[in-house]
């Protein structure tokens, strides 16, 4: 088991290393002078301020030292948690801005991912059992997973937000409220949360349902299922085993889907102006706020790595083979 997790951990460390390197490298590969762009983004200021800013950015980017030195400096500041200052929300530090967004991402993504995974798997297993359900659920599942996240988000916002007028369609809470712990605020928060959650949930649900349906049919044809059937075991037991074993690739699938989920979260947050990192990175791009873009990228990678690690731990708990260290490649 330790070998399995150790190998995974090595991959994650390398991934982090690569991500930070990309983060550092790309602005330096691009044409143009980012400092000029950034200063011009801040709008007209007096020359003295411009000079101060230029010095600040020069120090941050440290463009006057050799490349390798710049690279090491970049790493140092990453570890110090110094991700620079945002130009869009000047002079707030990037880290602060991101920290304020993270809770909304967790609030949105964690329930959407987990609930869609549980519901999708159970539904898929049910579909594999009944033909009529299979014939209706399967096409619906394919349509759902093929739906671009933002389109479903737009449709839901239009239908349930504008036409039916049930849900608000922008922000995490009403403009006239400040975040505080009260029943009124929580209610408002949930009301704003529901549509983005629902649209993420629905697209992912389709994918899990199809995946489980196909896996369980495969497992029901597996040798161990046939053996149990030959020994007269009732369908209930055979299906229970098949379901449990089909969950294993679905857990791996969760890890593989994280990239798509990130894309979905970005698009959904943009539609609903939901103040998570996805919305933040798009705002940063539109305003060419380079430090904020870099910071968001880094945090997205960190989130994905953390999620991967949690999934690995879950996998080890569920699959005895990884515990025994007897499989080379499980995920």
């Amino acid at each position: 088991m330790s070998r399995y997790l150790g190998r995974k951990l090595l991959i994650y460390l390398l991934t982090f290393f690569l991500a930070v390197t990309i983060d550092w490298l790309i602005p330096r590969l691009m044409p143009g002078d980012p400092i000029n762009v950034m200063i011009s983004r801040l709008g007209p200021r007096n020359p003295q301020e411009v000079q101060l800013l230029r010095e600040y950015y020069l120090k941050i980017f440290a463009l006057d030292v050799p490349m390798w030195q710049q690279y090491i400096n970049f790493w140092k500041s990453v570890f110090r948690g110094d991700l620079g200052r945002s130009t869009l929300f000047f002079p707030r530090p990037v880290l602060d801005i991101i920290k304020a967004s993270v809770p909304y991402d967790i609030l949105l993504l964690l329930p959407a991912i987990l609930l869609s995974w549980f519901a999708g798997n159970n539904f898929g297993a049910l579909a594999a059992r009944r033909r009529w359900l299979d014939n209706t659920v399967l096409p619906l599942g394919y349509i759902l997973t093929a739906t671009p996240y933002m389109w479903l988000a737009l449709l839901l916002a239009w239908a349930l937000g504008i036409v039916a007028g049930i849900f608000p369609i922008a922000g995490a809470y009403s403009f006239d409220l400040r975040p505080h712990l009260s029943w009124r605020f929580i209610q408002d928060l949930l009301l704003h949360w529901f549509l983005p959650f629902l649209s993420l949930f629905m697209v992912m649900f389709g994918g899990w349902a199809i995946g489980m349906r196909n896996m369980i049919i495969y497992e029901l044809e597996a040798d161990y299922s046939r053996y149990l059937e030959a020994l007269g075991a009732p369908q209930g037991l055979i299906r229970r085993y098949a379901f449990r074993n089909a969950l294993l690739p679905q857990i791996t699938g969760l890890a593989l889907q994280l990239g798509t989920i990130v894309a979905g979260a970005v698009a959904t947050e943009v539609v609903f102006a939901y103040p998570g990192i996805g919305n933040l990175i798009v705002q940063a791009i539109q305003n060419q706020d380079y430090f904020l873009i870099q910071g968001c990228f880094l945090f997205i990678i960190l989130g994905v790595l953390l999620a991967n690690l949690l999934i690995d731990i879950a996998y080890v708990i569920v699959d005895p083979r990884t515990r025994l260290g007897m499989t080379g490649e499980a995920a």
């Binding site: 991959i11 994650y12 390398l14 991934t15 690569l18 991500a19 990309i22 983060d23 790309i26 602005p27 590969l29 691009m30 044409p31 143009g32 593989l256 994280l258 990239g259 990130v262 894309a263 970005v266 990175i281 940063a284 791009i285 060419q288 380079y290 873009i293 870099q294 990228f297 997205i300 990678i301 994905v304 790595l305 991967n308």
Partner: peptide, 21 residues
């Protein structure tokens, strides 16, 4: 492959595209 697989495609596309005018 395993390393690149973990990095979300869209995140990479975003930061590349962001710097291309």
């Amino acid at each position: 492959t395993n390393i690149v697989l973990i990095i979300p495609t869209l995140a990479v596309l975003i930061i590349i595209a962001a710097y291309l005018t």
